[in-house]
Amino acid sequence: MLLISCPNCGSRDETEFHYGGQAHVPYPENPDELTDRQWAEFLFYRDNTKGSFAERWLHSTGCRQWFNMLRDTVTYDIQAIYPMGAPRPAPNTDQPADFGTASLAPDSTTTGTTGPSVASTDLGPAEPAATAPKGATQ
C-alpha cells in the first residue's frame, strides 16, 4: 500500500485515491484534423515507462482533487507530487516521499497558471519534458 501525500490533505493511504494514468496528455487541439493514427495514439496509446513515470491521481475519498505524481514504476517510490498543469519536475530521489504537504501546494486544480509549488528548491530545475506540452491539464 502506498502512502500518498495529497497536496491538500497530507499523507493518506492509497485506498483513498484513484489512479488516473499517464499525466500530461492534452486533448488534441484540432480534433477534426486528426488522422485515424493520431486518434489511436490519443485514445489507446500511453507511455508504459519502466522507471520514473508522471501520472495523475485523484484523492477520491478526501478532497476529491486531482494532482500529478512522479513515481518509479519498479520500486514504487514516490519522487514528486505537483499540481495539475505544472510541468513535470526532475525526479529527486533524495527527498522523502511525503514532502508534498498541504502547505506547499496552493491549489491542485490549477491549470498551469501556478508554478509547481514543490519544484523550486526541493526538486531542482524543472525540465521541459517532451511529454508535457504547455497547458496540459488532464
Binding site: L2, E14, T15, H18, T73, V74, T75, Y76
Partner: peptide, 13 residues
C-alpha cells in the same frame, strides 16, 4: 493493482 508497475509485487489491500 490500479497503477502501472513492473515490480512483480502488489499491494496488501
Amino acid at each position: 493493482d490500479s497503477y502501472n508497475g513492473y515490480g512483480q509485487r502488489g499491494s496488501f489491500h
